[in-house]
């Protein structure tokens, strides 16, 4: 199992080692983006238990709430959007530690910084792969948990949609924090202190969308704001995270 993995990794990293030819080609940035996404997905698939851990954490946190507040169905139904969203927030924050730490430990991160492609683009690719592995499963699992809280079909749909729009924003904002705390002692706790306050708008509008639907109002406004936050984060966060990586690796 091990040797082919190493060989594959080496092949995938090839574009970074041929800067001249890569710069000539106009489609090189897209190729580099796809290459990093593919590599990160491959690595994640070779360590599936890491992915499963995040998912289990999400499920466990959500199922703790009924045990804490009691099995009253009316109460649980009103709490459900907030509970699912807070759990998603915590789960994606816990997963952030893995975003750069593996590459930092084995030196790949320095190769990425030295690559001829814009670092922001490569960071964006890493966040995209990270979201596919940690964010998307949360989105797919959320309706199941919502059912346990007796949400109706419409609310479940909006819950999924809001998570689909919101979790990439969480990953993008979190990338800045993960890059800043790279290699520090107590990085995990510090990361939560840095990142959670910045997550608050996403939480408000994400949980708010489901609550608005449950209250008979439309979720359009909330989802629009979530989309706007996502667009802003996609545009700015990779560059801020790239700068943070440069600061941390200096």
């Amino acid at each position: 199992m091990q040797p082919p993995l190493l060989e594959k990794e080496g092949n995938l990293l090839l574009p970074f080692r041929a800067p001249r030819t890569a710069q000539m080609n106009a489609s090189a940035p897209i190729a580099a983006f796809a290459c990093v996404v593919r590599r990160d997905l491959l690595l994640a698939m070779r360590r599936r238990s890491d992915v499963a851990t995040t998912l289990f954490f999400f499920v466990i946190v959500v199922s703790l709430f009924p045990l804490g507040v009691g099995p009253e169905m009316n109460l649980l139904r009103t709490m459900a959007p907030g509970v699912v969203w807070v759990a998603a927030l915590l789960a994606s924050m816990l997963a952030l530690n893995r975003l750069f730490s593996g590459d930092y430990a084995d030196g790949t991160l320095e190769q990425l910084v030295l690559a001829p492609h814009p670092l922001g683009l490569l960071v964006g690719a890493k966040v995209a792969a990270h979201w596919l592995v940690t964010g998307l499963p949360l989105v797919l699992l959320a309706p199941l948990l919502g059912l346990a809280f007796d949400l109706n079909a419409k609310s479940l749909g909006i819950l999924m949609l809001s998570l689909l729009l919101g979790t990439p924003t969480l990953g993008l904002i979190g990338a800045i924090g993960a890059a800043l705390t790279l290699g520090l002692r107590g990085a995990g706790v510090l990361l939560s202190l840095l990142v959670l306050p910045l997550y608050i708008p996403v939480l408000i509008f994400g949980a708010g969308a489901v609550e608005a639907v449950a209250a008979g109002l439309g979720a359009g406004a909330h989802l629009s704001v979530l989309g706007a936050l996502l667009v802003l984060a996609v545009f700015f966060a990779p560059w801020a995270a790239a700068l943070a990586l440069r600061i941390s690796l200096e």
Binding site: L180, L194, P197, I200, I204, F236, A240, A244, I247
Partner: peptide, 27 residues
Amino acid sequence: RADRAGALLAIVGVVNVPIIYFSVQWW
């Protein structure tokens, strides 16, 4: 590194303060 990392965090924070304020108000 402490200076530069803190600076980036402060800038990200100051950009986020209005967003946080208005989202909390709407909430």
